[in-house]
Amino acid sequence: MKVLVCFKVTPDYEALRPADWERVAAGSDETKFVHRVLNVFDESALELALRLRDAVRQAAAGAGRAAESGVAYGDVRLRALTIGGHDADPFLQTLLALGYDAVARVPANGALDFAPQLTASVIAAYARRTESDLLLLGDRSGPGDSGLVPFLVAESLGWSCLSGVTELRASAEGALRLTWAAGEGQQRATLRGSAVLAVGNAVVSCLRVPTLTDRLKTRGLGIDLVQLEDLGVHQQDVVASSGLAGLEVVDRRRAGVILDGRPPATLARTLLDDYLAPLLETS
């Protein structure tokens, strides 16, 4: 099985202060001053793919078959793709050190940031080019995210699409067991065949870390740079990113009162008498 995992490297938006956002709204690119991070949902997808491969290889080895047996799902090959600038290269090198079989970057410095249709075209074209069987990516990509890319990719490839995926396991029959968030709970299903899986709030949210030895071993491996034109996207198709029309700070702070400075028994009495009792009386 050939798995393609798509990921996005974004500025660490949490490192920006309100004053910085005001400058962004005024047209200044404050995001160039902050560290780059993996989109957290993509990070889950990258780690889930590694765990899937580990499990399949372990099962194959345990069954006494060679890892590359050629049996469906007998091995998992991992490939990673990102669209962006060279600041994504350290992350691609990390993936090589972790055992991804190949990594690629489509150079496009912000050109496709607000162009989900084009982004999906690029990903779908690359998936076809690499004959991928399964495509994983996060179901959200951060500020400015349209939420459309996974579905547009699936539509382009003619594959099923499932979003909110939280878990991914190989089943004994060589299929995939999926868990995804559905309403207030979760649902499970068995997947056979190709699909686009958009990873949501997975329990697995952190990518493992390669050792220095792992990095040394893969230092000579290259990052495949794939031009937009090679994927059928031409410069004239890349309309200048939708401009930022405006920014509004959403105040998500919860209203609250801090009670402190007194013994716990007194605090508990204050909480009960002054805050909870009135609520109980009115309910």
Binding site: D20, F33, H35, V204, S205, C206, R208, V209
Partner: peptide
């Protein structure tokens, strides 16, 4: 400004510590 932005994010609050603990728990790194 690169140094200023880095500097503004140097200290670790309880949320940063909790996030790091979760990272350690998952990755054993």
């Amino acid at each position: 400004k690169l140094i200023e932005t880095w500097f503004n994010n140097l200290c670790w609050g309880p949320d940063d510590i909790a996030h790091e603990n979760e990272r350690i728990y998952q990755t054993k790194n």
